[in-house]
Simulated assay, not measured.
Amino acid sequence: MPTFDLRHLKHAFGRAAPSYEAAAALQKEVESRLLESLDYLDGRVPQVVLDIGAGPGRASAAMKKRWPKAQVVALDLALPMLRQAKKKSAWWRPFRRVCADAAALPLADASVDLIFSSLCLQWVDDLPATLAGFRRVLKPGGLLLFSTFGPRTLGELREAFAAADQVPHVSPFAHIQQVGDALIQAGFRDPVLDQDRFTLTYPDLPALMRELRAIGATNALAGRRRTLTGKARFARAAAAYEPLRRDGALPSTWEVIYAQAWGPAPGAPRREAGADIAAVPLSAIPIRRKPG
């Protein structure tokens, strides 16, 4: 059974498209920090840039401004997000918009110089397989930059709802070691990982839930309860959260993992079931033919 309900994700982020930018202060900060890592290109100018989980297109526009001659592609699962992104795609600096799933990229092999993805990969079911897809479209020597949430994210909310309901209300998030292992398994070269922790505060639980809804981060677990949470359960969760109140506000932890890696040389092996699997193009395999 998949971890996430893809239809629910599309709907939630589509519904959040008009409110996203006003509510996504943390997401903007993480995106800005990830954009600073573009300096690792050492002055190289990419020809094709892919922004996966582009949302309203803020990073896509920033990269198009940085490299006006590059082809920048903003890819997102939610079409309404891409309609918001169109507002940032000025006629003198346009970028392309593609509605697609990060786990099934509709791009040719070795066609992208830079993959940028900020706070998208926490929504994929199979991180190693998704990163293998990233490797497929990234050119040898191309740069992969992404951020994702770590397991401490929304820990207070997770525990509060666990005290009120047996059904999970908060998504699972990969540990930094799992992210590193997934990069190595996919065959990326020289991975570097870092992490930040942010603490946001809210006057009460409804305020936190309103913000999550405004950015599309609602409960998208495939095994979620399909009925409304209910006033009684919500009240029990709020009561369980209340002892954490400090200086008149409730804290909410957000752990962010940053990753950087490089596309390997052609034919470099990837890890699969503990073994190295090498990919060799058919044209490179000599064929002996018997004389007719």
Rank of each mutant, 00 (worst) to 15 (best):
residue 37 S to A: 14
residue 38 L to A: 00
residue 39 D to G: 12
residue 39 D to K: 15
residue 40 Y to L: 15
residue 42 D to A: 15
residue 44 R to C: 01
residue 45 V to P: 06
residue 45 V to I: 15
residue 47 Q to P: 09
residue 47 Q to Y: 01
residue 51 D to G: 07
residue 53 G to P: 04
residue 56 P to A: 14
residue 58 R to G: 13
residue 58 R to Y: 04
residue 60 S to D: 02
residue 62 A to T: 06
residue 64 K to L: 06
residue 66 R to V: 00
residue 67 W to C: 01
residue 68 P to K: 00
residue 70 A to V: 10
residue 70 A to C: 08
residue 71 Q to W: 01
residue 72 V to R: 03
residue 72 V to P: 07
residue 72 V to K: 02
residue 72 V to T: 09
residue 76 D to Y: 01
residue 77 L to D: 04
residue 83 R to H: 14
residue 83 R to M: 13
residue 84 Q to M: 14
residue 86 K to Y: 06
residue 87 K to T: 13
residue 87 K to I: 02
residue 88 K to R: 15
residue 89 S to Q: 03
residue 90 A to C: 00
residue 91 W to R: 15
residue 93 R to K: 12
residue 95 F to A: 06
residue 96 R to Y: 10
residue 97 R to P: 03
residue 97 R to M: 13
residue 99 C to I: 07
residue 101 D to S: 14
residue 101 D to H: 10
residue 105 L to S: 08
residue 105 L to T: 08
residue 106 P to L: 03
residue 107 L to S: 04
residue 107 L to A: 12
residue 108 A to M: 11
residue 109 D to H: 11
residue 112 V to T: 14
residue 114 L to D: 02
residue 114 L to H: 02
residue 124 V to G: 09
residue 125 D to F: 08
residue 126 D to I: 07
residue 126 D to P: 11
residue 128 P to C: 10
residue 131 L to Q: 13
residue 131 L to M: 11
residue 132 A to F: 12
residue 133 G to V: 06
residue 134 F to I: 08
residue 135 R to D: 07
residue 137 V to W: 01
residue 138 L to G: 02
residue 143 L to A: 09
residue 146 F to E: 03
residue 147 S to Y: 07
residue 147 S to C: 05
residue 150 G to Y: 06
residue 151 P to C: 08
residue 151 P to F: 03
residue 152 R to D: 13
residue 153 T to V: 10
residue 153 T to Q: 06
residue 154 L to E: 00
residue 155 G to A: 03
residue 155 G to S: 08
residue 156 E to L: 02
residue 157 L to D: 09
residue 157 L to S: 05
residue 158 R to E: 02
residue 158 R to K: 13
residue 158 R to L: 01
residue 159 E to V: 05
residue 159 E to A: 13
